[in-house]
């Protein structure tokens, strides 16, 4: 059976890269005695895949991994079992058994589903954007000006070439407070998601909070079709202000990963329920 596990990654664990997180979960499943399915051959490995790997330095409330199990207990039992062997900085918050697809249909892995992601980008204490941007109000004004541009052109560098890209269409939501964010999000979420419930049942966020209060919620395209890193948005913002980008000034925290359905978006964990219904 296939399961989808949602977990948080925070604190010092932001320094652990994606491949090491994979190894970490493989070992954690063994410690928790999870009945994983293994590939065949002389060096068998657990069958699992991750959605949209998180970069080093970022924290998250919504990491997803799909795994194949031979057997499992009730989701709440599994969550407790796995959390019992995790170290500080990792916490499982959801565990779902994916519905078996119809004959001739394949399970779509989380990896292939991702279309967009929400991030909270906060200015770390000890850093300053500029002398004129000292408060959240100053920041909002500047960022709104940035977003009002007809297009936001950045240069994307690949190994072979440089390419000018307009990233504005890839930013689908901008908010400056939790309320504002929830409000805007409710308008784009798929109708099967009961928005108030969704926010209520979400566990406490592990995002780091900073005294300066300067922050922005961003929803950006993510995945194989179009992919925009929130760091690139901030880099473009600095360029718009005519300032040198400070790569370590912001803490980027992932809030959710979505897939697209009927022109709306749906969190990955909720997708499985309706996928084959």
């Amino acid at each position: 059976m296939k399961v989808r596990i949602k977990f948080q990654k925070y604190g010092a664990m932001k320094f652990i890269g994606h491949l090491d997180v994979m190894r970490y979960f493989q070992k954690a499943f063994r410690r928790a005695n999870v009945d994983n399915e293994y590939s065949k051959g002389f060096s068998p490995h657990q069958i699992m895949s991750f959605a949209a790997p998180l970069g080093v330095g970022l924290t998250s409330d919504a990491e997803y991994l799909d795994a194949s199990l031979l057997s499992c207990e009730a989701p709440e039992v599994m969550i407790e079992k796995i959390n019992g062997v995790l170290t500080e900085g990792f916490r499982v918050i959801d565990f779902r058994i994916l519905k078996e697809p119809e004959v001739n249909q394949k399970i779509i892995h989380a990896m292939a589903l991702v279309s967009s992601a929400d991030y909270l980008v906060s200015l770390k204490d000890g850093y300053s954007i500029s002398e004129t941007i000292q408060s959240q109000e100053d920041f909002i004004k500047a960022f709104e000006g940035f977003m009002k541009q007809a297009e936001i052109i950045i240069t994307k560098k690949t190994k072979k070439s440089e390419q000018a890209v307009d990233i504005k269409p890839m930013i689908s939501l901008v908010a400056f407070s939790q309320e504002d964010y929830q409000d805007k999000l409710s308008k784009v979420l798929h109708e099967t998601v009961k928005v108030p419930d969704y926010f209520e049942k979400n566990p406490e966020s592990k995002a780091d909070l900073y005294d300066n209060g300067i922050k922005v919620f961003l929803q950006v395209d993510t995945g194989s079709v179009a992919n925009l890193k929130p760091e690139l948005v901030m880099e473009a913002f600095f360029e718009y202000l005519g300032l040198a980008y400070q790569p370590f000034a912001f803490q980027v925290h992932r809030l959710e990963l979505y897939t697209r359905l009927d022109g709306k978006i749906l969190p990955l964990d909720l997708y499985s329920d309706i996928q084959y219904s």
Partner: peptide
């Protein structure tokens, strides 16, 4: 942590310095 984010994100393999292992 003893080291700042800036240092840890600059050096190779920051996991060498953060502890917190299983």
């Amino acid at each position: 942590l003893a080291l700042s984010d800036e240092i840890l994100l600059t050096v190779e393999k920051p996991a060498r310095y953060i502890g917190g292992e299983v």
